[in-house]
Amino acid sequence: MTLFRRVVPTLLLAMSLAGPALAQQLPPLPETVRSQGVLRAGVRCDQPPYGFRGPDGGFAGVEVDMARQMAAWAFGSADKAELACVTAENRIPQLQARRVDLLIATLGVTPDRARVIDFSDPYRWGGSDMLVKRDSPIQKLDDVRNRTVIMLRGTTQASWFDENMPGLNALRLNTASDALQALLQGRGEAYAHDAATLVVIATRDPSLRLVGKPFAVSDAAVGVRKGEPEWLAWINAALARMKAENLYMLWVERWVPNETRPFYISAFNDPRPKAR
């Protein structure tokens, strides 16, 4: 009995020491973040499977799991992740206004963005595609030249069409659900967005199909404010550890149904393909 009383606390102590010992793989958390006691991350709420509202209305998705994992490593509990919904349009202003300390929000690496924020190492790549009605005549990218294309403000696709097809009739909306609604009502003939998002919609709705000609392929990375190198180094170390521990596979399996799973696993694990 005496032995039991002694052994159990010792074991508990050993276990609690093992936790910090593992976390020592990561560089020290910068004081600015540690003093807050929470990890304030901006995530998407309308981008399954990366960031979306789960069946219970809570945050869900691979990028949400990434944020929670970082909170667990930084503060010892996944509950220390203070998540905020950001949109394609407001995510960078939210970061700059210090409402969040990092963005894990389907953020593609572009030179324009790199001028105002810093990017971590990329954790996956993402291409763009277009969603059209099943009977649509659109077969390739150039077919949309004289048609209306729906896209979201501030997305990679909006900049891409701006540069590569100036004068295109673009309908720019704020949320993916608005865009889908507009496509279904025929307010535009194609909806250009991240292929990853469109794959899910296309498998769910048989009246729609993907054009399947990828364009504007870019890396997705975590975004932080400029001038926070220690914080960036910590995030990079955390991302490397997620990859090393193969956590992405676990999360993709959690959030992605069988039919579309290979697409996402490839996005996290394979090198980036070449495209227009």
Binding site: R113, A158, D162, L173
Partner: peptide
């Protein structure tokens, strides 16, 4: 601008989303 009409606010918000010069 919320329904995508490119009136004054729509144009400006578009630029902010691309160039971040709010």
């Amino acid at each position: 601008s919320a329904i995508g009409l490119q009136e004054l606010t729509g144009v400006a918000f578009d630029r902010i989303a691309i160039d971040f010069r709010a």
